[in-house]
Amino acid sequence: MTNQNQVRAKKHLGQHFLKDESVAEKIADSLSYKGYDQILEIGPGMGVLTKYLLNKDTTTHVIEIDTESVDYLKANYLNLSNRIIQQDFLKYDLNLVFNGEPFAIIGNFPYNISSQILFKTLEMRAQIPEFSGMFQKEVALRICSSEGSKVYGILSVLTQAFYDAEYLFTVPPHVFNPPPKVDSGVLLLKRKANFELPCDEALFFRVVKTAFQQRRKTLRNSLKTFNLSDNLKANTIFDKRPEQLSVPLFLELTSLIQEDSNL
């Protein structure tokens, strides 16, 4: 194995290489490996997590945009070489590899694109039954938070409409090279048994995003742009602020708006 300094962490890619083997093993063990035969690791870097994934009874693919990391992986993980995708995860059509089949996502995600990784996962949820990853701690906590919390917001509601979200553990800065300025957090998403929405999906996303853009206001005020009927606005749900609504209540609210606009 070539030494740790083979790949230089690049700031513009948000790279912070995990160097703690026990943390890497713990992340690899967080998935159940049930309901799919393939995994995609995002941003493997020098493969500290990859090596544990390769020991699992599943087929591991990795996607990496950094040429230097790709060269390192090809040189050090020969049994992985034909499953290294040198592409930008956010722009790449994953079905060129997975062809409609289910797969899990895992990784130590670059902080600067972690939310976008999550949104792409939500778009592909029919194929992604499980997701485990490292985020900035405050983002991980936000995704897993419940209504009533100060950090409950757009990411929480949209993710939990489709997945059960669990915050697993905190990772301190010193286990990375270079160390980030903040703590990291690992979370696990398990897709709900029924992940079909009882309302229009595009409208649901719009309602949630619009409501939280003015989170201190009541829904009656924050959702003014929807031109709701006076009759609907009289419903007591509109007395609430967005952070007071559970995911089921947001789905109910969207259904009410949907019916109102169809009248």
Results as ranks from 00 to 15, higher is better:
F135M: 08
E147Y: 12
Q136D: 05
L168W: 02
I143F: 02
N177A: 08
E196I: 13
F103P: 04
N76M: 10
K74A: 02
N108Y: 08
E68I: 05
Q127A: 07
I117V: 14
G185W: 00
T59L: 13
L94Q: 07
V171M: 10
M124Y: 00
I113H: 10
G153D: 15
S156I: 07
E147S: 13
F162M: 03
Y111W: 12
Q116E: 14
F135R: 01
G133Y: 05
D93R: 06
K150L: 08
L90D: 06
V139N: 06
L189E: 03
Q127W: 01
G153W: 02
F135H: 11
P102I: 03
P173T: 11
G100Y: 09
Y152L: 08
Q160I: 10
I154T: 13
L96A: 12
I154K: 14
L158W: 09
V62M: 06
I105Y: 08
I143Q: 00
K137M: 12
V186P: 09
P110E: 06
P179C: 07
A75E: 15
Q116M: 07
L155G: 11
L168M: 15
Y152W: 01
P110F: 01
P180C: 01
L90E: 01
V97K: 06
F162D: 05
V186Q: 04
Y111T: 10
T121K: 00
F176W: 04
D183I: 00
F109Q: 08
K91C: 11
L78S: 08
N99W: 05
K181A: 13
P179T: 12
V139Q: 07
S184H: 03
K190C: 00
V97M: 09
Y77L: 06
T159N: 06
I106Q: 04
R191Q: 04
E166G: 00
E123S: 09
K150H: 10
S115V: 14
Y72H: 10
I117Q: 05
Y111F: 15
Q86A: 15
L188T: 00
L90W: 00
I143D: 00
N82S: 15
V171K: 07
L94Y: 09
I84E: 07
Y152F: 14
E138S: 10
F98C: 14
F119W: 06
Q116I: 07
L141V: 11
E147Q: 12
Q86R: 05
D164I: 06
Y77Q: 08
D71W: 08
N76R: 11
P172C: 00
Y167S: 02
V171F: 12
N194C: 13
P172Q: 08
E196S: 14
P110M: 04
N79V: 13
I143N: 03
I117K: 10
F119R: 15
V70P: 03
V62I: 12
K91F: 11
K91D: 10
S114Y: 03
E147G: 06
I85T: 07
F89P: 02
V175M: 10
E68Q: 12
F135E: 05
N112T: 10
D183P: 13
V182W: 01
I65W: 04
I65R: 02
L187I: 13
Y167T: 02
G100S: 15
N95S: 03
V157E: 05
P172H: 05
L94F: 09
Y152G: 14
V151W: 05
L96C: 05
S156Y: 03
V97I: 13
Q87S: 09
S69K: 00
F162R: 00
T60L: 04
F176L: 04
V175F: 13
